[in-house]
Simulated scan of single mutants.
Amino acid sequence: MFSLWITSWMNSGAGWRLNPSIPDSAIVPEGLSIHRQDRTIHSGKSKGGGVCFMVNNKWCSDVEIISTGCSPDLEHLMIRCRPYYLPREFTSVVMTAVYVPPHADDNNKAMDELYGVIDRTETSRPEAAFIVAGDFNSANLRKVLPRYHQHISCPTRGENTLDHVYTPYADMYKPLPRSPFGKSDHASVLLLPSYRQKLKRDGPMTRTIQQWSDQSDSGSARDCFSTTEWCVFKRHRHKHIHGRTVIGYIGKCIDDVVPRITVQTFPNQKPWVNGEVRAKLKARTDAYNSGDLEEYRKSRYALRRAISSAKRQYRDKVESHYKGSNTRKHVGWIKNSD
């Protein structure tokens, strides 16, 4: 997805403490933006300097701070980034910088607090890519989030791997150890992306579906059913045989009068994308290529409305399966949606 460079130079041997009197320009290299969570008196510590992110402006300029915290057990900073380019399956990247002190009273308390922060954000931003990085010391995020994978396999301080990077995606990064920053006693780690997009992992799928229209519903289907001699089906004495026969006949009539079309779906396609959204996307692209700015503005507005409507319809469809009492149908629908 993108390369990531982590280090713990703010937390250990660097020896400084970030505070509001230190301007960003004194510590951030040119071309990067810095986002800080300075250590406060609530941490109970007198040395070190909290956590921060430095983001390359060529990769992303839209950065929002979501959550911060500083306590004796956990220091964290969570930001949301919307890069200039992302794989279509993600809408943004949510990154969390973490520091768990080596002598924290209770690592479980720190992980529970971190779990609460991540869980709330995952609920509100389900289509974001999540990355959790920092100095965990003896703590382990997988105890509370077992579906997250740890990507650092090389030692970061002596023979110990104290700095971790977690994501929900297996084999996302390849770690490369690098020299420490400044006076830090932690090695820095460069992570090179090995994540492959869904579109590259799984090819497009072609399937045939029935396309209903007003003509099929009110014309051909009605004519077929009106000319049927339904009394023929009454010859069966058993109700279940009679029912299967009628249903089979109705299905055959529908197959005869409703045309079938071939559609292509892509693995990174959102589940709420329907024919109207695809049509509006094509109209927007055509308007952009034509150079007509007024038409392009109208097509963008129409696309936003179509997307909002499609998402609302998909939400109602999902919620309708939770309102019924047919557990088997609900489970089967979830499986097919995946």
Rank of each mutant, 00 (worst) to 15 (best):
E113T: 02
T68C: 10
P101H: 11
P87E: 09
H151M: 05
S153D: 14
I118N: 04
D171P: 00
I34A: 09
R39Y: 03
A97K: 08
I152D: 05
V165A: 05
T156H: 12
E75S: 12
C60V: 03
S92K: 06
T161I: 14
A110H: 03
R88H: 13
W59N: 01
T91M: 01
P72E: 07
R125Q: 00
N108S: 08
A170E: 08
P72H: 08
G69V: 03
N107Y: 15
V165S: 03
Y115D: 01
A133N: 04
H42C: 07
G49K: 04
L114I: 01
T121V: 11
H35Q: 06
G69N: 04
N56S: 15
V165C: 11
N57F: 00
H42L: 13
E64V: 15
D163G: 10
P126L: 09
K109P: 00
R120V: 04
N56W: 12
F130R: 10
T123N: 03
I41H: 03
E89M: 07
G116R: 04
T161S: 13
I131H: 04
C52I: 12
L86T: 04
G69L: 04
P155D: 11
P83D: 09
I41L: 14
A97Q: 07
A104M: 08
A170C: 01
N140P: 00
E64T: 14
H35V: 15
Y115G: 01
I79Q: 03
R142W: 00
D38G: 02
E75I: 09
S71M: 10
R88Y: 12
R39P: 03
A170K: 09
Q150C: 12
D106T: 00
C60D: 02
T123D: 03
N137P: 01
H151K: 03
A170T: 04
Y115V: 00
A110I: 09
V51H: 09
T123M: 05
M54A: 14
D62N: 14
T161A: 09
W59L: 13
N108H: 02
L162D: 01
T91G: 07
P72S: 10
F90A: 08
I118L: 14
M54W: 10
V93L: 15
Y99L: 04
G49M: 06
S61N: 10
R147Q: 13
K45Q: 13
D38W: 02
P146A: 05
G49H: 06
V117K: 08
K143C: 05
K45W: 03
V165N: 02
T96D: 06
N160T: 11
E127D: 15
